[in-house]
Amino acid sequence: MNVFRFAGDMTHLFSVLVLLLKIYATKSCSGISLKTQELYALVFLTRYLDLLTDFISLYNTVMKLVFISSSLAIVWCMRAHPVVRRTYDKDQDTFRHYTLVAGSLVLALLFHDRFTIREVCWAFSIYLEAVAILPQLVLLQRSRNVDNLTGQYVFFLGAYRAFYILNWIYRYFTEQHFSRWIPWIAGLVQTGLYADFFYYYYLSWKNNVKLQLPA
């Protein structure tokens, strides 16, 4: 494992921890998109089917279990926790996320490695992950004033994608992973979606003011 991959995994883990911290510490999920969280839960459940069949390393297994359980826990909190669920901005979180699921499914049925359930699910999870952040970005944009932890959550998620791209560039030159163009495109799309957010995050950090996205 190279340093970029490890940094990517750690920033991904931080993003989840920041989100859990926000929900537990403030007993509030305002500014968090339930739709994005549900999409991530679906991404992890479909991608980590190999937990049942293959063993890669203890590190991989533990991380996969952490991502699956944390995403399910967050969805549960937002839907069912007696206090937290009342803070959910339901009226603003209106992105039609099933269109993302449907689009990813069609792409996965068309472009995959082999036509097996596992490979189609894997491809589906790659496509869906690339766009799963959209409902969250739309919600951020609508809620204007973004609290620090929510801003940091999205920042760490974006950093994770950026590190994964660096990881792929590194692996491209050091290993023989040549024609893996699907994750490249999906990863670039996803990182591009964050570019705008990063810019405003940087401005708020530089000027030491609260993060505010333009209308």
Binding site: D50, D113, E119, W122, A123, R171, F178, R180, I182
Partner: peptide, 10 residues
């Protein structure tokens, strides 16, 4: 395996 992300990644 020319389509997918390496399977050893998360």
């Amino acid at each position: 395996e020319c389509f997918s992300q390496p399977k050893d990644e998360l």
